[in-house]
Write a protein that binds this DNA or RNA. Structure first.
Length: 503
RNA sequence: GCUCCGGUAGUCUAGUGGCCAAGGAUAGAAGCCUCUCGAGCUUCUGACACGGGUUCAAAUCCCGUCCGGAGCACCA
């Protein structure tokens, strides 16, 4: 029965005991997401709003996967809207990041139907800003950031708030004409400086920046803030559902306030989810960018960045990541999960496909005395699928076992897996061939291939793999027995490099 | 400090007043199986933060307390 493929097993089961298949196991696949409020079939419009400062990482994946999952469930369209306003000194837009983001989305299997760039829409944002000026709902302010912060804290209005609308219009023109220095003026919404929520007191809508933008250069001196640009674009793009982290709830209020002023309908529904953290991981695109530049990380797919590219390189399946995030649903809880949970998801997907091979890290060489003449051992490619065939691991005269195993079992009888039992030492003694219930270790004899396994920590494990590893292909995901799953990254005549996924 | 949002087993999550003596996943333990420390199978451990209400009935509704998080950037 186990010899059958999982499909074959299902077919067989369907004949013997169909009722067993009826029961939804609950463990297969992610559970269903809750319905999306107000969603109509075929009419959901969602949007992805990446900020192109680097490749997407595992922490960004949640919002993207959720949006994609809902759009697929209800039918509709998903807009990839690069949120590439001018950003900040510490967090600049990077020209290469646009493609890096798309690469990550493609790998994740996210289907977007349209691409728009915030940086193309700045004139539109200006138009809508001017509507606000006509309503006298905003004012230009030249207080510096520090004063602004203090006033906000104290609930105190500055003199700009009460200036004439004409004055503001003149200042706005001056802002647009580039007459202010970087940070020299802002346009603020008149909410209420006494608003109980200090975060909501006359928020900034536009600011001055003269920095260079990779797509539009220095054409614009005035850039919209996220909430203003989205209030305009969510409306103009016909977005029906905004699904985002709860760290952005105040943006809901801002967008709503602006829509009230603009008197626009209909409005998207807001859906939030809680903050997701990874145990022992601090994800930061800007830090990784710096460390790559300093050469401390090998590139955007260095496993330490946890970028989607790096997960791909390790051989993780996008479906594992999707299931993993979807399992959190829309819960507003702030959660902290261990990467192990993702690995468990991936292991389920990868195990039956990953053929088994011996890899011996930090090899220790030994000779075996009394060994009967033997050409090779023939372990199965996969213990659960004998039909897949066997490997050939040549034998003698010298053997290599992992240093860790050698030190742990020295002087004891162990089994060179799928071959024979020996008392382990530099001069080992052959005991017998039959399979015994003693510790098994992986081993390599002659013809071993120099193999390097890049671990998630960046550490490289060097060792020898059995000869057949040299005929693997890039992208093959294998299991090195007793070590773990890895993706073959590079194969040359004498060397193999693999990226470790997980145990 | 202010505003908002949360608190179900170690970690995630299901649960929207009776079907919950709380389900699933993951982690952990034991056993079986297996020539891997993988997979599979079986069993077990383990939770409604606390205190008050409302109700015939509360994990589910209300109030308070405690704890956690986010926002209070001219970042997104």
């Amino acid at each position: 029965m186990n010899a059958l493929s999982s499909e074959g097993q299902k077919d067989a089961l369907a004949q013997i005991a169909p009722e067993l298949l009826e029961k939804p196991k609950g463990e297969t696949g992610p559970k269903e997401l809750p319905p999306l409020p107000g969603a109509e079939d075929g009419k959901v419009v969602g949007r992805l709003a990446p900020y192109p400062s680097g490749p997407l990482h595992i922490g960004n994946a949640r919002a993207f996967v959720l949006n994609d999952a809902y759009v697929k469930r209800y039918g509709g369209k998903l807009i990839l809207a690069f949120d590439d306003t001018i950003g900040s000194e510490e967090k600049p837009v990077l020209p290469e990041a646009y493609d890096q983001v798309k690469e990550g989305l493609d790998w994740l299997g996210i289907t977007y139907h349209d691409i728009v760039y915030k940086s193309d829409r700045i004139p539109t944002h200006y138009e809508w800003a001017e509507k606000l000026l006509e309503l006298d709902a905003a004012y230009a302010c030249t207080c510096d950031a520090e004063t602004l912060r203090k006033n906000r804290e104290a609930g105190r209005a500055c003199e700009h708030r009460v200036q004439d609308a004409d004055e503001t219009i003149a200042m706005w023109k001056a802002m647009l004409d580039g007459e202010y220095e970087e940070g020299g003026a802002v346009l603020r919404l008149k909410t209420d400086m006494q608003d109980p929520n200090p975060a909501f007191r006359d928020r900034v809508l536009f600011r001055v920046s003269n920095r260079d933008h990779p797509r539009v250069g220095t054409r614009y001196h005035v850039w919209p803030m996220l909430e203003f640009s989205w209030a305009v674009d969510d409306h103009l793009l016909g977005v029906t559902h905004v699904i985002r982290g709860k760290d952005l709830v105040i943006e809901d209020q801002m967008e709503t306030r602006l829509w009230d002023l603009f008197q626009v309908q209909p409005r998207p529904a807001f859906v939030h989810f809680g903050i997701l953290r990874f145990k022992d991981l601090e994800l930061s695109k800007s830090r990784y960018r710096r460390e790559i530049a300093e050469g401390r990380l090998t590139g955007i797919d260095d496993p330490r960045t946890w970028s989607l590219q790096s997960l791909r390189r390790r051989g993780l399946r996008p479906a594992a990541l999707r299931d993993f995030v979807l399992d959190f649903g829309l819960s507003l809880n702030d959660i902290e999960v261990a990467a192990e949970t993702l690995y468990a998801e991936n292991r389920k997907l990868v195990d039956e496909h990953a053929n088994r091979y011996f890899f011996v890290p930090e090899p220790v060489t030994l000779e075996i005395h009394g060994l009967p003449p033997t050409e090779a051992a023939h372990p199965p490619l996969h213990p659960d699928f004998p039909g897949r065939g066997r490997r050939t691991v040549p034998v003698g005269p010298k053997f290599h076992v992992a240093k860790e195993d050698f030190e742990r079992f020295r002087g004891q009888e162990v089994r060179l897996k799928d071959f024979c039992n020996v008392v382990l030492d530099h001069r080992a003694t052959f005991v017998s061939l039959e399979n015994k219930d003693i510790p098994k270790v992986q081993w390599v004899s002659h013809g071993g291939v120099q193999t390097h396994v890049v671990m998630p920590t960046g550490f490289e494990s060097h060792g020898l793999a059995e000869p057949e590893v040299a005929s693997l292909k890039v992208d093959d995901v294998v299991q090195f027995e007793r070590v773990g799953f890895a993706r073959i990254d590079h194969v040359s005549h004498a060397e193999v490099r693999a990226y470790f996924a997980h145990r």
